[in-house]
Design a binder for these strands. Sequence first.
DNA 1: AACTAGAGCAACCGCCAGAGG
DNA 2: ACCTCTGGCGGTTGCTCTAGT
Length: 371
Amino acid sequence: MGRPPCCDKSNVKRGIWTAAEDAKLLAYVSKHGVGNWTLVPKKAGLNRCGKSCRLRWTNYLRPDLKHDSFTPQEEEHIINLHEAIGSRWSLIAKLLPGRTDNDVKNYWNTKLKKKLSKMGIDPVTHKPFSQILSDYGNISSLPSIDNQFGFFFKNSNNTFVPKSEPSSGITGLPLGVNTYSNMMMNPIGSDNSTASTLSLGIVAQFQEINQDSVQVQPHFLNEVASSCSSSSSPHATDHQLSSQPIFLCQQSLHEAQITPSSSFNWSEFLLHDPFSSADKLKQEQDFHGTMMSSSSVIPTLAGGSELNLNATTRACDFGSSAINIGGQRNNNLAHDQASSSSMTSFVDTILGQDSEMQAAFPELLDASFDY
DNA sequence: AACTAGAGCAACCGCCAGAGG
DNA sequence: ACCTCTGGCGGTTGCTCTAGT
C-alpha cells in the first residue's frame, strides 16, 4: 500500500505557533535542513502536522524572508505581475526576493485590490470599469467625455457611477494599467487628432514589435497575452495572438482619443491621490509634454529586430516601462528611471534569463502553455 | 468605557500533480 | 495498475488589533 499518513490530525496542535515551537522548528531546520516534512515534527519534538511545520517555515521562519512592509516598487511589481499572470502567487513571490506567496496574496487581498477599485480599475481584469462596461455594451448611451476615464465608482447601491469631478481630458487617467491589453483592445479610432495620429503610429509599431517578439519569446508573450486578454478571450491561442488583426474591437471615438495618455506610472499613481489637484496639474503637464515630445519619441521605437526583444520587454514590462510605447515618457522620465530603475533592471534580468532558457531549451518553444 | 466595523495577517482547507509502495 | 501520501498551490477563514462612534 501507500505511505503511512504523515500525522494523526486529531492529535496534533493547531492554530498560532508559540515562540517555543518556533524555536524548536528553527533549531531543527537550521541543523538538519529541510527534507521530509512529515518527519520534521517528530524529530523536532513538535506536536504539529508536517504540513503545518512546512508552512510555518516557508511563510515565517525562513531566514531570507523580509518582515517589513512592502515597498512602492514591490507594490508596483505585484500589480504588474498580477496583470500579466493573474493570481499565481507563488510565481509572483519568486520574483520578489524575501516575500512569500502568502505575503503577496495577503497584501493583494487586503490592500491592492481595494486600491485599484478606488482608482476605478477592476482588480481582476486590470481594466477601467468604464471599459468593462463598454465591453458589455452598456456604455454606448452614456455621454461623451467622462466615459473615457474609468472613473466609475460603486455607490451605496453597489452600482457603478461616474465620478462627479469634472474631467479635463487626460487628467488622472490610470491608463497605464493594462497598457498591453489596451493597445490590443483599444486601437486608435478614426479621428484626425494629433493624439490619434500619434497612437496609430504607436500601435503599428507595437504590432510590428509584437509580431517579432512572438518569434523571440513566444512563451513569454503567450503568457502575457493570454492573461491580459482573459476577460474577453480567456482562451486566446498563439495563432490569435500572432496573426489576428490587432484591431479586434470596434471602439468608440471617445476611447480612441484617450489612448495617447497611456503615460502612466504605477508608482506615481499609487503613491499619490490621483484626484488631487496637484496631481491633476502634473498629469496635465505630463500629457502636454507627451504631445509635444511625441514626434521625437516615435522614431526611437522604430528600431530593427535587435531592438525588438528589448522593446517587447518594455512593452510587456508590465508597468512604467510599458508606457514608453505610448509615445511617452514625460518630463518625469529621469525621475521615474531613477525611482524604478532597480525594478526595471530586475525585470530585465528575469526576462534575459528567460531568453537564455529559451535558447538553451528550444523544445520549450513548442510547449503549449494552457493557463 | 464599551461596542462595532474594518484591516491585517497567520494559519487552515481543499485540490492537484507527482511520487512511493 | 492502483492506491495513498507528499509537497505545493490558491482560496478562505478566523483571530487580533486598531480606529471610529
